[in-house]
Amino acid sequence: MTVIQTKNLKKVYNPETIPVVAVDDVDLAVEEGEFTAVVGPSGCGKTTLLNMIGGLDQPTGGTVSVGGEEIGRMSQSQLTDFRLNNIGFVFQSYNLIPVLTARENVEFIMLLQKCDKAYRDKRTLDILEKMGIRDQMNRRPAQLSGGQQQRVAVARALASSPKFILADEPTANLDTKATESLLDIMAQMNKEEKATFIFSTHDQRVIDKAKRVITLEDGRIISDENR
């Protein structure tokens, strides 16, 4: 089943003054359960592509469909709801809510989804257990290492049972050990929870783990390799 479909997707910054084409005519289909890396040099349009797929940025042209639903026509409010229920985000610098504990951070997304308490508690503990950080659940982000914070971020992204997870350079701030550990966990989640992952990265360790590697250059897909 196709989870993400883009057609002629285009993003031009400053179209009226000095146009900068960030994404140029990208056609892409991502199937359920994929573990995909979008790679390329800095400035090739990876983050812009992910932002448009995630409904964070509006395309200049073309369409993005998620689960068959075109998101370009949605209002900002509808998009926020859509992201909440369909997309999990993992950012480069973890971006947990600093005043909430690891457990509360994971639970927070389900509170936004208005899930009942029993479900929230079970889901939170299950995911934290799978991520191997249940023993750290009552600590705030500042009391966790970078690797642990990123695991909490992945747990938060998974907690809402999204159709797919967008991870923008998730290992950029992690050391080798933490990176490998995180990738193993994400691969395990991909397998066990059938979670679809799309990464933007230029970290070779991530690329090596990916089942599909899409290479961008100057906003265009120059290769799309299934492994």
Partner: peptide
């Protein structure tokens, strides 16, 4: 501002 951006991106509506 960055934190508000994160909250919005993960699905927290602006009025909240």
């Amino acid at each position: 501002t960055y934190e508000f951006g994160i909250l919005t991106s993960i699905g927290m509506k602006k009025p909240k």
